[in-house]
């Protein structure tokens, strides 16, 4: 009962319809780009290894997703930097 009330007031967790919408969005992008979650995981590991040569990054906080805008799909990632590695400036 209170869960319902919280949902209606917009506080608390996501409603099941919001979860459905998010899941659908992602599923449709994957359907259209033919990039499987496995390949995305590999891309993630490769990006980390390249970036790590120059920067110390918070690997566990890297979020990599496919986003659809209109008819195009973009690879979007946010990589938190801890510091620049010594000797990487030149």
């Amino acid at each position: 009962m209170f869960k319902k009330l919280r949902t209606m007031l917009g506080i608390g967790g996501k409603s099941s319809k919001e979860i459905a919408k998010d899941r659908l969005r992602v599923a449709l992008v994957y359907d259209k780009t033919d990039i499987s979650p496995k390949i995305l995981e590999e891309i993630r590991a490769e990006i980390i290894s390249v970036i790590s040569k120059r920067l110390v990054i918070k690997e566990e906080n890297i979020d990599i997703t496919l986003e659809r805008e209109g008819s195009t799909v973009a690879l979007v990632t946010s990589i938190p930097i801890v510091k620049v590695k010594r000797g990487a400036e030149n």
């Binding site: 209606m8 099941s16 319809k17 919408k21």
Partner: peptide
């Protein structure tokens, strides 16, 4: 169910 936030509404489906 739409009121309860447990069903996609018309706008959600059209958006997608």
């Amino acid at each position: 169910m739409v009121v309860e936030g447990n069903m996609l509404d018309v706008r959600d489906v059209i958006d997608i």
